[in-house]
Simulated assay, not measured.
Amino acid sequence: MAKQVGKAGSGARKMAEKRTLIIYGTLLGFILAGSFLLKFAGKILLFNSYWVNLFGLLIAGVGIGVFIAVFMIATDSKEVDQPINRALKGAKAEEKISEILGQLPEGYTVFNDFPCPMGNIDHIVVGPTGIFIIETKSHSGEVTLSQEGKLLLNSKELEKDFLKQVLGQTFWLKERMVGLLEKTPFINPIIVFTNAFVKIDKPVKGVRIVNKKWLIDAINENKVQLSDEAIKRIVSFLTVIKQE
């Protein structure tokens, strides 16, 4: 079985935790602000002055408005939890792909949640058939390609340019590896969908797009061959970068 380095999905789970703190922390802040405004308004209304009382009523109105806004947001659980659930879904997808990559034979090393300036790389695989950068997506539906060369999900553009993302990560890693070997090895970018049906047969801008069922085949079928010495040096190099 392949050697695993790092825990898959850890970055996505941290993102979910951060989003939870931000979203529910903001709601709590609004509740406290609304409570303060109502309490402050109550004290102002004790004054025997028309203008002061009017000001107090305005503050009370703002406080009530804050509570109504918080109530409407909080009762729409889908709107509140969607960013959190999206991150958790992504984490589970990365964990599933890590499990699949673990089925590769001995001689392969899988780096999970690898740090990168363009956003953490979900997986880097190093083995006899080459180096692979794998970006995992948990979307459901049908993945196709537009006439302009953009990925589509159910005939609509995705929320982000995943091709640009994985290519940016690939170029970054290639630059970091310059001088490591006599000849810088080619890095194979792959976008893998865990739940979507992929109707793209050929690489797009050099990027393979596959369903998780064909991920191992995409790695095994690569014609590049790395020597044991090259694999050892690359794995050692990536281990150092991951610990930076």
Score class of each variant (00 low, 15 high):
113 D>Q: 03
114 F>D: 06
114 F>Y: 15
114 F>W: 13
114 F>V: 07
115 P>T: 08
115 P>H: 09
116 C>D: 14
116 C>H: 04
116 C>I: 03
116 C>F: 03
117 P>W: 03
117 P>F: 06
117 P>Q: 13
117 P>M: 12
118 M>F: 13
118 M>Y: 14
118 M>A: 11
118 M>C: 05
118 M>S: 10
119 G>H: 08
119 G>K: 08
120 N>I: 11
121 I>V: 15
121 I>H: 02
121 I>R: 02
121 I>S: 08
121 I>N: 04
122 D>H: 03
122 D>V: 01
122 D>Y: 01
123 H>W: 03
123 H>F: 00
123 H>S: 02
123 H>E: 02
124 I>M: 08
124 I>W: 11
125 V>Q: 07
125 V>R: 05
125 V>G: 07
126 V>E: 02
126 V>R: 02
126 V>D: 00
126 V>F: 01
126 V>M: 02
127 G>N: 06
127 G>D: 09
127 G>S: 06
127 G>R: 08
127 G>L: 06
127 G>Q: 10
128 P>N: 04
128 P>E: 13
128 P>H: 02
128 P>V: 02
128 P>R: 11
128 P>G: 00
129 T>D: 03
129 T>R: 15
130 G>C: 02
130 G>P: 00
130 G>K: 02
130 G>D: 02
130 G>V: 03
131 I>Y: 07
131 I>C: 02
131 I>D: 03
132 F>T: 05
132 F>M: 11
133 I>A: 07
134 I>H: 09
134 I>E: 08
134 I>V: 15
134 I>A: 04
134 I>N: 09
134 I>P: 05
134 I>W: 10
135 E>C: 04
135 E>F: 06
135 E>I: 04
136 T>W: 03
137 K>F: 09
137 K>M: 09
137 K>R: 08
137 K>W: 05
137 K>C: 05
138 S>P: 00
138 S>F: 14
139 H>Q: 14
139 H>L: 13
140 S>C: 05
140 S>E: 14
140 S>W: 08
141 G>R: 11
141 G>L: 10
141 G>N: 11
141 G>S: 13
142 E>Y: 11
142 E>Q: 14
142 E>P: 00
142 E>A: 14
142 E>T: 15
143 V>E: 12
143 V>R: 13
144 T>R: 15
144 T>Y: 05
144 T>M: 09
144 T>N: 14
144 T>V: 10
144 T>P: 05
144 T>A: 12
